[in-house]
Structure formats: structure tokens, C-alpha cells
Design a protein around this nucleic acid. Structure first.
Length: 749
DNA sequence: GCTCCCACTTAGTATTTACTCT
DNA sequence: AGAGTAAATACTAAGTGGGAGC
């Protein structure tokens, strides 16, 4: 009552500043302070598409050079900031690499190395000491289409220069995709196509109108190519695969600090059409081919420089120990960087992954105070502080992302700090509807109840003169928010809350699971826990095209099994008509399926049997032809079909009479056993269906890969005797090897 | 205190591979 | 043993966040 809980916006504002004096700055939202920065920043598309993009200013500067210079003097001398001074005898990470005798027989030397048992590994600013690698693999050069495959314009064959043909081909190859139907994609593609066409000398036809372009011949050619590739024989495919393997061999690994480590994306991204997600303004633009001259290699000092492809040279060579990339180039769509880095199972990735989870775990020790503080700060007299508190609340409770500012030339997506007026609907007394597009243009839609003061604050943040298009959090940015969070804990940033809460939820869910049932049942429980995390993080996936079909198929299957079950029960009555008297309950469901339903099921079953009979006949004949045997005749097939038709009649008769003749030799007991089997199948199939439905638009993979501390999964496996293979795929087991090897069943997040 | 640059993690989807069921 | 499906992996776009330099 006495505090500012009910202050209006203007009241808060006027209280801002020091004492009662109104402080201009404090009252002004960031956007205005920045001098109309509202017009999003970021390099406004500097036109020049794919053309020479001299970033001379930057090249000259070589930012890293200064960095490197700065730390060079100190680096070799001081062995990192080792705070804990452990046994100095074995600290390979902090010794100079030359000191570690690894070079000879390097292949084996790494096998047993366990960085997670090395306390010092990963400390210090330098990420490695020595680095040798083979560079990158380039996509094959463009192969012009055969002369009979052409683009047609207004019905006329077009003779395109190779590069223009290549661009057109990229569109033709994806003509059936949703992208190719998107007008923005089409327009961007077409503009770039015309530009490339002009730059490469034009063609025999004047092309003006996208609608008049006919890509179908090209598309058909690519389709045919795909088919041919698929139709290759086993050994042919095998040979191609082996050749590829051999070519890639040298690039797959590198030598870092004397250890053999896997490289992740050693293939340079091939040219193509940019597939932006959501309503990306640049979707469809031509992503140009990357040449060796575009690439900067990062190597250890003195490491051999891999030869550039014939007739080419590398753009630059760098020796920057403070970064983890092996190669880098600039991409032409958004003018950003692409990096070649080590694989997920490498030491360097493992270390930072473990650090991430350790930071999140540390938050446990601070979360109470942080929550108490932001709850209090929700009523702070300063607007900025209220926003900080409110944003922290949303990030903590609803797992929102930080929400940095985005440019005009990107898809319009938001996170917490970039939420706008129209994304938040208030329903008194304390309900809020969030509706916005987040990362990857995935919709975040939630109607939730919030803290009363949070509700009030959100109302204040929406107060006029604000309207649609205006930022809710107009006085904070992720940087400001993170600065504030650092006060509580080193390394605490907005994203840590997602990791913390995800792993915390997983731990809590696991605590609820009891050690009973089969392995399969435990896996289902694990997945259910995993799913709660995925839902918290709003990890979605588009419902696959055949999801509907799949669901229907399973439903049909269940219906069919039920029909089978009822038939079996009726057989029991055929064997022993008094059974119904003895166990009325058991036969209660006898009429669960109507005659119509049974009819539908029967027709489906029969239809399938016929199908299968025909297929089998075809198959057998194929085989016989190969083996030069006598072919089956139409009569053979007809015989089968007739038999099926007979079965159909019997089924239909069953429906009519409601009676089913028991199979020969069947007893009540044997039938009951069969029924049990069918019932089990029904249960299993129903679970399968439920799982399919529940998971249809939830993606479990992302949280497993990035948010759930892998040690939790290891604990689950050990405690509940579930083989880790059931929970982690091969890739995941490699990536999380550190967790698998170092965690005992009593570990807690 | 900002902007820009850079580097790194996180993310959904496209493609490949493995597995299931005839 | 091969089609058809589901799982696994590869790919690369789209975020976050630190820090240099004005």
C-alpha cells in the first residue's frame, strides 16, 4: 500500500531521477535516447550482390591480430590463471604443447585421454596450442546441363550461360517445395537470376516475367537424375561411397594439441538458393559459390599450410589460438560468417558443453535470492528496474529467450526484450496471452497466469502513447539485462535460465519416476520427462506430411484388432454357449462394434488381402522370370482371390448372424490365450498412437541435445538399469562421452 | 553507452540410414 | 529381400553474448 505498487506510468516517471526532480533521460525510452534508433539497425543491405565485397576496412584491421598481439607476450610465459594450483605434474592443458610428448604415434595417444579428469583443461584464454588440419572440401564445380535440357520462356528455349543456368537449375530442382511457391522466394530468386544472367552475358531471349518461365524440363531432368541415382545397384552405390570416403578421409580429423580430433563441417556450403525460415525478406536469394580465395584458414604457427585447390589460393592464413574455428568465410546473403569447427565429440566442444551445464548448476545456489530480488524489484520506482525485474521473471518462469534486436532484412521474430505491444494481451485480473513468433519463426502461444505485480507492470509497459509496433521493454536490452544478472553470478546471462530450468525440470521429473516395469516402459517414462522439458522450451516441429495418414493407419489397426478380439470371444460362445452366463462381464463388449463398423473393417481387411495376394503374385513371377522358371498363371491368382472372396462372405455372414464359428480344435482356454495376445497388441498399439500424437508437434531432440544435462540421463540409465543406448543415439553417446564416463548414479543436477 | 564485429550455441528440417514388416 | 517407414544424422539458419572502439 505504502509502496509504489499502484503507481501510474506518469507517477513512476516523475519519481524517476534523483529525488523528486524529473530526469529527462530516465523518462525517455531507449529508442528515443538512441535518436530514433527504432528504425532497426544492422548493415542495410549494401546492394552489391555476390559482387566483390571488399571489406577493406576490416581486412586491414584484422581485429584478431591486435588480440593475438596483446596476449602473445603473456601467453607462453604464464601458464593460465590457475587458481586452484593442483598437482602440477599432470596438467597437459596448461603446458606448452611441445612439452607434451604426443606427436609421435599421435593416432593412439588420444584414445585414452580424458579431458574431464584434467582439472585445468579449458582454463585460460587460449583454446589450443597447436593445430594442424587439411583445410576444407569444396563442392564439385557446376556441370552444365545437356543441350536438350533447357529453360523455356514463353514457350521458347533459352540458351543460358552456365552460371545463369546453374541458378535457374537450383530453382527448378526445388520446384515442388513450399519454398518455390512462396512469392517472396520467387521474386528474390528471379531478381538474382536476372542479375546473374546479365552479368554473365545475357541470352537469346529477353526474360522479364517470372510467370513466363517454364522450369519443367529442367525439373524433369533433375527428377530423372535422382531416380537414376536411386536405381544404382548395391555394389555401385558401395563403390561411390568408398570413393567419397577416401576423398574425405584427410579432412575428417585434425591434430589439435597433438591429439586427433574429429572435424565437424569440413565441407564448404554449396551454392544454392537461400532457404530462410518464416517470412524472411531474403529467402530465395542466390547463395553464391565459395572459393578458396574467400576462405581464411586458422592454423597453428608453423603448421603446414594445406595446399589450396589447383589454380587457387587461400584468402588468408591466421594463427589465432583464442578461437576454435579451423576455417571461416563470409556469406553473401546476410554478410555474416560461417565457420568450420570441430565435431561435437571433440574435447574442445565437450569442455564448453560441460562448462555450460556447470554454470547452469551454479545458478542453483543463487536462484532463490535472484527470485526474491526480482520479485521485490517489480515494484521499483525506476522504470528500467521494473523492466529488468519483469523481463527476468518472464525469462525465468516461461523460459523466454533474451530477445535481441533484429534488422529490417530479417524475419520479424522476437524474444523477451523485443516483445512488442501486440504480442501481449492482458486479461484482468492476472491472465496474460503471449502470442508471437520466436526463433525460427516458431509460434509461442500461451495463456498464462502471472504474478499480480507482473501483470500491473505489463499494463504499464503497454500504456499509451504506446500502441502496436512499440516495444514493451523500451528501456532495456539483453546487454543491460545481462549486466544486471552478472551481479549475482559470474557467467549468468539470460540464456542460462533456459538451461537451468530445463535441467531442473528434468531432474524433478526423474525424481517422480519409480524403478518398476520393463525397460521399454522406463524409456517411455524417460521420454515423457524429456517431453515436459521440450514443452517448457517450446521446441516444436511441423507435423509431418504423413502424420495424419499414420494416425489413421494405427487407428484402423486398433479397430481391426478389436474386431479380431470380438470374433475370438464369439468363437468361445460357439464352443461353449454357456460361457456368457458364467462370465457376463467378459462378454459385455460383444456389441461394441456396430454392424456398419464391422462391415467397413471387413472390407478393409479383404481389400488388403487381395492387394497382398496380387503383389505376391507379381513378386513371385518377377523372381521366376529371373530364374527362368515357369510363370504363375492368371488362374493361380484368381484362385487365391476367389478364396479371399469366400472368406469375405463368411465374415459378412458372421456380421449378419452375430455368430462366429470357432476354428477347428479351438478350446475356450486356447481362445482366451489368443484374446490376451490381441489385447496386449491393442494396448501396445494404443500407446504407440498416444506417443505419436503427443510427439507430433513436439521435438524432443533439441532439449536432449542442448538443454538437459547429459549426466541426468546417465543417472537414469544407471539407476534404472536402462542401457544408455536406449536413451542416447550413437552420436549423442559420443558427444556426451564425458558424462557417461564420469557420472555415478547418485549425481544430481 | 552505443554500434559493430565476431564467435559461439541453439534450432528445425532435409537427407541418409536402419529397421520393420511383409 | 525389398518397399516403406521411422530413426538418426547432416546441414545450415537463427539465435545469444562478449568485447573493441568510438
Amino acid at each position: 500500500m505504502s509502496d509504489s505498487e499502484d503507481l501510474t506510468l506518469s507517477e513512476i516517471s516523475s519519481r524517476n531521477g534523483h529525488g523528486a526532480v524529473k530526469n529527462e533521460d530516465d523518462e525517455m525510452p531507449l529508442a528515443q535516447l538512441n535518436g530514433r534508433a527504432k528504425q532497426k539497425k544492422r548493415k542495410s543491405s549494401d546492394k552489391s550482390n555476390g559482387a566483390p565485397k571488399e571489406k577493406k576496412a576490416k581486412k586491414a584491421k584484422t581485429p584478431s591480430s591486435s588480440k593475438v598481439k596483446k596476449e602473445t607476450p603473456s601467453a607462453p610465459a604464464t601458464p593460465k590463471k590457475t587458481t586452484k594450483t593442483p598437482k602440477p605434474s599432470q596438467t597437459p592443458g596448461s603446458e606448452t604443447p611441445s612439452a607434451t610428448p604426443k606427436k609421435e604415434g599421435s593416432e593412439e595417444a588420444d584414445e585414452g585421454y580424458k579431458w574431464w579428469e584434467d582439472e585445468n583443461f579449458g582454463e585460460g584464454e587460449e583454446r589450443w596450442q597447436t593445430l594442424e588440419h587439411a583445410g576444407v572440401i569444396f563442392p564439385p564445380p557446376y556441370e552444365p546441363l545437356p543441350s536438350y535440357v533447357k529453360l523455356y520462356y514463353n514457350g521458347k528455349a533459352v540458351d543460358l550461360p552456365p552460371l545463369a543456368e546453374e541458378v535457374a537449375g537450383y530453382f527448378a530442382a526445388m520446384i515442388e517445395t513450399d519454398h518455390a511457391k512462396n512469392p517472396v522466394f520467387q521474386q528474390n530468386f528471379f531478381n538474382d537470376f536476372l542479375q546473374v544472367l546479365e552479368e554473365s552475358g545475357g541470352c537469346n531471349v529477353e526474360i522479364k516475367d517470372f510467370e513466363k518461365c517454364d522450369f519443367s524440363k529442367m525439373a524433369a531432368f533433375f527428377e530423372k537424375q535422382r531416380e537414376e541415382k536411386k536405381a544404382l545397384t548395391k555394389p555401385e552405390k558401395q563403390r561411390i561411397k568408398e570413393e567419397k570416403e577416401k576423398l574425405e578421409e584427410p579432412y575428417k580429423t585434425c591434430l589439435m594439441d597433438g591429439r586427433r580430433e574429429n572435424v565437424g563441417n569440413f565441407r564448404v556450403e554449396p551454392p544454392g538458393l537461400f532457404r530462410g525460415r518464416g517470412a524472411h525478406p531474403k529467402t530465395g536469394k542466390f547463395k553464391r559459390r565459395v572459393f578458396p580465395e574467400d576462405i581464411t584458414l586458422n592454423l597453428g604457427e608453423g603448421a603446414p599450410i594445406p595446399p589450396a585447390p589447383e589454380g587457387h589460393s587461400w584468402g588468408a592464413i591466421r594463427h589465432d589460438k583464442t578461437v576454435v574455428w579451423l576455417a571461416m568465410w563470409r556469406e553473401n546473403i546476410s554478410d555474416t560468417f560461417k565457420y568450420v569447427k570441430l565435431a561435437a565429440n571433440s574435447s574442445i566442444k565437450g569442455i564448453s558443453d560441460m562448462k555450460k551445464f556447470e554454470t547452469a548448476r551454479k545458478l542453483k545456489d543463487h536462484i532463490q535470492r535472484i527470485r526474491a530480488d526480482y520479485t521485490k524489484m517489480l515494484k521499483d520506482q525506476f522504470m528500467q528496474n521494473r523492466q529488468i525485474a519483469t523481463a527476468t521473471y518472464l525469462i525465468d518462469i516461461f523460459a523466454l529467450r533474451a530477445g535481441g534486436e533484429k534488422g529490417e532484412d530479417e524475419a520479424d521474430t522476437v524474444g523477451c526484450c523485443s516483445l512488442r505491444y501486440e504480442h501481449v494481451t492482458l486479461k484482468p485480473p492476472n491472465k496474460v496471452i503471449f502470442d508471437f513468433l520466436g526463433k525460427d519463426s516458431i509460434r509461442f502461444y500461451q495463456e498464462v497466469e502471472v504474478d499480480r505485480q507482473v501483470f500491473k507492470n505489463l499494463r504499464i509497459f503497454k500504456k499509451e502513447p504506446k500502441g502496436p509496433g512499440d516495444d514493451m521493454f523500451d528501456r532495456i536490452t539483453p546487454t543491460i539485462l545481462n549486466k544486471h544478472l552478472q551481479n549475482y553470478m559470474k557467467g549468468l546471462t539470460a540464456k542460462v535460465f533456459r538451461t537451468y530450468n530445463a535441467s531442473k525440470v528434468m531432474q524433478d521429473q526423474m525424481d517422480l519416476i519409480s524403478n518398476e516395469g520393463t525397460v521399454a516402459e522406463k524409456v517411455v517414462k524417460y521420454n515423457a520427462a524429456n517431453r515436459t522439458v521440450a514443452i517448457l522450451c517450446n521446441h516444436q516441429r511441423t507435423v509431418s506430411k504423413n502424420h495424419e495418414v499414420g494416425v489413421k493407419r494405427i487407428n484402423d489397426k486398433i479397430k481391426e484388432l478389436e474386431w479380431q478380439k470380438l470374433r475370438l470371444k464369439k468363437m468361445i460362445l460357439d464352443v461353449d454357449e454357456k460361457a456368457i452366463k458364467k462370465e457376463p462381464k467378459y462378454f459385455e463388449e460383444l456389441d461394441d462394434l456396430t454392424k456398419e463398423e464391422q462391415g467397413v473393417i471387413v472390407e478393409r481387411v479383404i481389400e488388403r488381402q487381395k492387394d497382398q495376394a496380387e503383389k505376391k503374385w507379381n513378386r513371385d513371377n518377377e523372381k521366376r522370370k529371373m530364374e527362368k522358371q515357369e510363370l504363375l498363371t492368371k488362374e493361380d491368382l484368381k484362385e487365391k482371390l476367389d478364396k479371399i472372396a469366400e472368406t469375405r462372405k463368411e465374415y459378412l455372414n458372421e456380421i449378419k448372424t452375430g455368430k462366429v464359428e470357432a476354428t477347428k480344435g479351438a478350446t475356450v482356454a486356447s481362445l482366451k490365450t489368443k484374446i490376451e495376445t490381441v489385447e496386449n497388441r491393442i494396448t501396445n498399439t494404443s500407446y504407440q498412437l498416444k506417443d505419436k500424437e503427443d510427439n507430433s508437434e513436439v521435438s524432443l531432440g533439441t532439449s536432449k541435445l542442448n538443454y538437459i544435462d547429459p549426466r541426468l540421463t546417465v543417472v537414469f540409465a544407471k539407476k534404472f538399469d536402462v542401457p544408455i543406448e536406449k536413451l542416447f543415439t550413437k552420436t549423442l553417446r559420443d558427444k556426451f562421452n564425458w558424462a557417461i564416463e564420469s557420472t555415478d548414479e547418485n549425481w544430481r543436477f
